[in-house]
Design a protein around this nucleic acid. Structure first.
Lengths: 357, 357
DNA sequence: TCCCGAAGTTCGATTTAAATG
DNA sequence: GCATTTAAATCGAACTTCGGG
């Protein structure tokens, strides 16, 4: 097997033209199977294909993009990679883009405004055709995204909703999730329940709490306000572990008995379990604990965490689906209204909760 | 404040030329602060800058890249995103690239050969200037990478070494790691120790075991071959949890007493802890357990896992550093030999191990 | 010769318009 | 008009060369 000398990436369409004896126009038409290709006899096609093959020709994407104004690239903007929530969502994003032959540029904003702005500019410069924003743990003014609206780049937010029809979104149904969590504890016979709510700045917090109160109301359960605490505002998702631990310690010190604890998310739950253990309280024997998200660690730790699962991979895939449709619409100069998809969570009962009955 | 009508991305350098009253050449020189710019009077510069600003001019990267043959892009190839090991490494990669104004294209091979090949082609087509391969949990023939050698793209492997000077690598010193783990258990007084070794196909397995035997030899500790088991070959990193659990169950059934278990990695350790717990054995009271890697979950679960930490973020950053230097070398037509960096791990003593004394 | 600026070429692929038989 | 092929224009920026003062 012979290979062309030197760098194969230097072979241009003109080289193929010369080698095959046809013009670069014809080569282009044949290799792209353009409409005009139907007039070109099979012999010619074969000769050109063979020449291209022989030289190891690969079209230069820069030149192609310059003409077509397309990058076949989608931007992915994560607000904090270290949030374990990201992993599966990214997997879903990647997989769907792969199927459609798009490539993702990954950016991690670190929850910093300056970084957000810089990355956004860089992505715009690269002429990304779409954008997926993973705003799960978000402490930035989302209006930063307003710049995007005028750029007319199809954008989908995951984990946070922005009203209006300029930007799509995919979020879990937090209200249902909160409902499910409390329902689960209640069905196990728990009545004295402690709650660690999310930070107020987080858009997930309010609806999740609403769902909890909804369930409480429907079954006449009374919530003890002394057993309700709030996670502090912090831009670091891992901080909710420490906060969960500290808040639980404080809860325990109160001496106000509770048989179950409903944590805002899995990280918080892990912190709570740590605190309970330190205080000599066994989970789930002496206290049941529930989380939210179902990050990878939840199934791995012992006892395995009962939690409300967000279908993370599906959410990533769904967000990309919306973006791809948006791209298609732009190409065809159609207008497409924004989607606001709310997906159902699912309770995953594992070992950290136990029946009181 | 006025904005130009329509899509700002359609403003070309010629528009700026027209607006400012100068030629596109001059505009280009000024805006890029090219060498010739020192001859151009401040008045001209100011006028051009103002015109560019007014029109919202952004240079077209496609055109720029076409001329300069540079993409300012680095490929990142992960063999399995769902491996929690990836998270921090990716953070290190991203952060270092950001500092150097490069953007990463993220690809996830899913440990599939076809995917690997397809992605590699796509990345090559995009004219990535460098490549970082995260081959932590690798069950593919690495010779696949041979194609890369002739492409002369600076490449660094993380987590697996390839002899020769065509490709750099960054790996932990597995031998030291194994040594540290056993040393730790030994110093706590453990003598009857069970071992779950890594799959043979994994390049980490052998040196880690070598380190363990080295320590055993230096302190005259005898290893009981009945307490040594191997993880099966599997391309799924999460499978080591289940395997760890099953192997530990089997170990327990043997009725051959052990006071500590040294697991191949954190996942395996989590599985082992689950099995021990199910068998009514408390960690660390009745059995100490150590892992390897220090994935995020290790600090989060209860008891927190004692483990050998890989400096993952630093490894990602280091790999990118090597790649960037390679890119620089290519630009200056220098030759650079491959680096083979071996970084030191660190024992992190937490709650899953306890002194027998 | 030094300073300033413009005209024209190049990068590589696509596409329009047009030329052959 | 039809099948087959191609010269030339285009995309947008950057660089080389050149001319006028």
């Amino acid at each position: 097997m012979r290979h062309s000398k030197g760098n194969a990436s230097m072979v241009t369409i003109r080289d193929v033209a010369k080698e095959s004896g046809f013009s670069s126009t014809t080569v282009s038409i044949v290799l792209n199977d353009a409409p005009l290709a139907r007039y070109i006899p099979p012999v010619t096609k074969k000769r050109i294909a063979r020449a291209a093959e022989k030289l190891g020709y690969r079209p230069n994407q820069f030149a192609r993009s310059l003409r077509s104004k397309r990058s076949h690239t989608v931007g992915v903007m994560v607000f904090d990679m270290t949030d374990p929530y990201c992993t599966l969502v990214l997997r879903g994003i990647e997989n769907t883009l792969y199927q459609a032959s798009y490539l993702p540029i990954l950016t991690d904003v670190h929850n910093e405004r300056s970084r957000f702005e810089r990355y956004l500019e860089m992505l715009l410069d690269r002429r990304i055709e779409g954008l997926v924003v993973l705003a799960n743990w978000l402490f930035l003014d989302i209006n930063l995204l307003a710049d995007l609206e005028k750029s007319s780049i199809p954008t989908t937010l995951i984990g946070c909703e922005l009203k209006g029809d300029s930007m799509s979104s995919v979020i879990v149904d937090n209200e249902v999730g909160g409902y499910l969590a409390l329902e689960h504890l209640h069905s196990l016979g728990h009545r004295k329940i402690a709650f660690i709510r999310g930070p107020k700045a987080l858009s997930d917090s309010a609806p999740r709490w609403r769902g909890i109160r909804n369930f409480a109301k429907t079954c006449g359960l009374e919530l003890d306000s002394h057993l309700i605490v709030d996670l502090p505002e912090s831009s670091d998702p891992l901080s909710s572990f420490e906060a969960g631990q500290k808040l639980t310690e404080a809860l325990i010190k109160q001496k106000r008995p509770f048989t179950a604890l409903l944590a805002f998310d899995d990280m918080t739950a892990f912190g709570a379990i740590r605190a309970l253990n330190r205080a000599g309280l066994r989970v789930p024997e002496q206290c049941s604990v529930t989380g939210f998200d179902d990050v990878a660690a939840s199934a791995l730790c012992t006892p395995a965490l009962t939690t409300v699962r967000q279908p993370m991979e599906a959410m990533g895939a769904g967000a990309v689906g919306i973006v791809l449709e948006g791209i298609q619409a732009v190409l065809e100069k159609r207008e497409v209204a924004a989607y606001h998809r709310k997906v159902a969570p699912e309770l995953v009962a594992r070992e950290s909760t136990r029946s009181l009955l």
